[in-house]
Design a protein around this nucleic acid. Structure first.
Length: 434
RNA sequence: CGGGGAGUGGCGCAGCCUGGUAGCGCAUCUGCUUUGGGAGCAGAGGGUCGCAGGUUCGAAUCCUGUCUCCCCGACCA
């Protein structure tokens, strides 16, 4: 993409509304614009990041055997009356009526709908187990939205729902999602700590929250330092044994930690950090299958309500979360895979024919090699281009200038480390295409 | 929802107390000079001050109402 052809409104100054670093950077780097309290428009660069996160989440859901579908954002009140949640949910649910005075709502979650859909489609134990998911916008009318996309009212969420014949099956489905989450967050370049969450009336230990460590997190966590020793490689190839290893290590939210009489972690290994909740998985059994009349026929001719679980990842929140975890004084530092473009190509002198020709040529070759490139071909000074590239945080900057060209080299800069290297255009291409 | 703060060109702000039809920085446009870390000079365009009503000869400024946004607390992917 040529920057001269793009919409990238970056700013030097920070809008007064933004408090935390991710929100400031998202506004400054032209990722989002707020349109109402807790509601954001995604500008081109922000949308690319959102789509990249979505892609990684989707790939790991698919790998875990979950099946994607897409449910609507608008739901009817009647559906929610069946589960009793229409009245129970409270003012956080956005309700309205259509022209025929039918009561509608903008979905804050989809248990009722998925259960109904599955009820009408699955009749036999042979239809189980299944895990279904979608990635869809939700609306929760938070009392006080804040922190940009971290606590918006409208947000993009991946929510998956599992259906199993019995509790043993539910446990397996739960573990499959647990593994998928570990891999997903590792691929996103994040260290996510699974924290046992209170399960409420259902009991058991089948509920975990996944927190990214960041100083601006809304929850305080207490955990065993050994959690930090688990390598990214291990998490990328996580399996059930990884769950056992992780859940064997102490990790609690402040409130729960306060209730623990004898903390099993020796003081020197007990870490206290703040965390951003980016995922939550839990098993709730037959709560919705019973309420919504979902049952399947068993082998011996009986009927059972499937055991269900649900599994959420805050996709839009992750955009902010990743920035909280990965930035410096100059701007965002995107992890590979999440970055909106892999390479930022800078032509230092747009008015110099040789420079322009060399940069144009590199741009064409990068495109041909399938390397997503943002080409700053504007007639701006080099300093302004550097500042823009640092701010938007693309992993690599490829710099073409008259000084280097005289010696037959271009410069490759790593955004994260700041390391610069001079090399031939061919070597640079080969490196970036690898 | 309780408590606090703020609405003035795209962004950041001043002006308001002590009414006299709007100013600064950034950004934008033009020209010249510059060109390896957000250039300099000169010129230009863009707002009628959240909205509604009131007081007044006259309102960004005073009064009333209203809407919106932000912050602190209780709740949440």
């Amino acid at each position: 993409m040529r920057l001269s052809n793009y919409l990238l409104p970056v700013t030097k100054e920070t809008p007064a509304d933004a408090q935390i670093v991710s929100h400031k950077l998202m506004l400054r780097a032209g990722l989002v614009r707020q349109t109402a309290a807790g509601i954001y428009a995604w500008l081109p660069l922000g949308l690319k990041v959102l789509r990249n996160i979505e892609r990684i989440v989707r790939e790991e859901q698919d790998k875990a055997g979950a099946v994607e579908l897409l449910m609507p954002t608008i739901q009817s009140a009647d559906l929610w009356r069946q589960s009793g949640r229409f009245d129970a949910y409270g003012p956080e649910m956005l309700r309205f009526v259509d022209r025929h005075d039918r009561e509608m709502l903008y979905g804050p979650t989809n248990e009722e709908m998925i259960t109904t859909l599955f009820r009408d489609a699955a009749k036999s134990y042979r239809d189980l187990p299944r895990t279904l998911y979608h990635i869809q916008w939700k609306f929760r009318d938070e009392v006080r939205p804040r922190f940009g996309v971290m606590r918006g009212r409208e947000f993009l969420m991946k929510d998956a729902y599992s259906f199993d014949l019995d509790e043993a099956g539910l446990k397996k489905s739960y573990e499959a999602m647990f593994v998928a989450y570990l891999r997903t967050f590792a691929r996103l370049g994040l260290q996510a700590v699974p924290v046992r969450a209170p399960t409420g009336p259902i009991g058991g230990d089948l509920s975990h929250e996944f927190h990214i460590l960041a100083d601006t997190g809304e929850s305080a966590l207490f955990y065993d330092a050994a959690i930090e020793d688990i390598s990214r490689e291990e998490l990328l190839s996580a399996d059930v044994s990884t769950i056992a290893r992780l859940t064997g290590l102490y990790a609690m939210e402040e409130e729960e930690h306060a209730k623990v009489a004898d903390c099993p972690v020796p003081p020197e290994r007990l870490r206290t950090r703040r965390g951003i909740e980016v995922g939550h998985i839990f098993a709730f059994g037959t709560k919705y299958s019973a309420a919504m009349g979902l049952s399947v026929q068993t082998k011996d001719g009986g009927q059972v309500h499937p055991q269900m679980g649900s599994y959420g990842i805050g996709v839009s929140r992750l955009v902010g979360g990743i920035i909280e975890a990965s930035h410096d004084e100059s701007g965002i530092v995107w992890p590979e895979g999440v970055a909106p473009f892999a390479v930022g190509l800078i032509n230092m002198r747009a008015d110099d024919d040789k420079c322009a020709a060399a940069a144009d040529s590199l741009y064409a070759k990068l495109n041909a090699a399938g390397v997503e490139t943002l080409y700053d071909d504007r007639d701006e000074r080099g300093g302004a281009k550097f500042a823009t590239m640092d701010l938007i945080g693309l992993p690599w900057q490829l710099i073409v200038g008259p000084k280097g060209l005289e010696r037959g080299v271009v410069e490759l800069k790593n955004r994260r480390t700041g390391e610069r290297e001079e090399l031939s255009a061919e070597s640079a291409l080969a490196r970036l295409s690898a």
